[in-house]
Amino acid sequence: MQTFDPVKIALDDVPANRRRGGDLRVLLSPKTCGATSGFMGVGTLEPGEFVSEHYHPYSEEFFHVVRGRLLLRVDGKELRLEAGESFMVPIGVRHRIENPGTEQAFVTFFLGPLAPSPELGHVDCEPLPGEGTLPEVGDIR
């Protein structure tokens, strides 16, 4: 039987990443807790902020809006999400997330399965709006 050491990750344990837009934090991943099937995080977007268009060649991405509202541009179509609503982006589908509202939006996200290596998991389709480095997910241990 495999042994397991529980790992708890708090929002403040992970620094904000603004490279792709908004405030993105990868909370549970191969790097933070040894995950092997995907990774999970949260995003905060102030009014007018966005996460730049991208796609995932190996992963589906699941969103759930906790607070505020989002405009999700998926493969050229627009979908508005309110607090309490969720959406799944299929593998390989381009998407961009925007906050068109007047209040802060807070979203959770999960991607799975993992790409063969972190650098293959995310393809950017437009210039990145933020400063700094890209989020780190880590390799499967």
Rank of each mutant, 00 (worst) to 15 (best):
E126C: 09
P116F: 13
F106Q: 01
S29T: 06
P30A: 13
V65P: 03
Y58V: 01
P15S: 09
K31V: 08
E136I: 14
F87H: 05
H54V: 14
D5S: 13
I9E: 00
M1S: 11
V74I: 15
T36P: 00
I9K: 06
P47N: 08
P127S: 09
V14H: 00
A10Q: 11
L28A: 12
Q104M: 14
H95L: 02
I97N: 04
Y55Q: 02
I97Q: 00
L27T: 03
R18V: 06
G138S: 07
T36I: 15
V123M: 09
P100H: 08
L81D: 06
P47T: 11
G101V: 15
E131W: 05
D75I: 11
P135S: 06
N17D: 13
I140F: 02
P127N: 09
E82D: 14
R20Q: 04
I97W: 02
G68E: 02
P30M: 13
P118N: 03
A10C: 12
F110V: 10
R73Y: 07
S52Y: 09
T32P: 02
R80E: 14
S52T: 14
G130D: 06
L134S: 03
C33I: 15
G22D: 00
L120F: 11
H122K: 10
R25S: 08
E60L: 07
P135I: 08
F106K: 06
D124V: 12
E49V: 06
L72D: 00
F50G: 06
K77E: 15
L81F: 13
P116L: 14
R94A: 15
F106W: 04
D124G: 01
L27C: 10
S37R: 14
V74H: 02
V123G: 01
F87K: 00
L11R: 07
P57S: 11
F39R: 04
D5E: 15
G38R: 01
L81S: 01
P135H: 05
P47D: 04
T44P: 03
L81G: 01
P127K: 05
V107P: 03
P135M: 10
Q104D: 09
G43R: 01
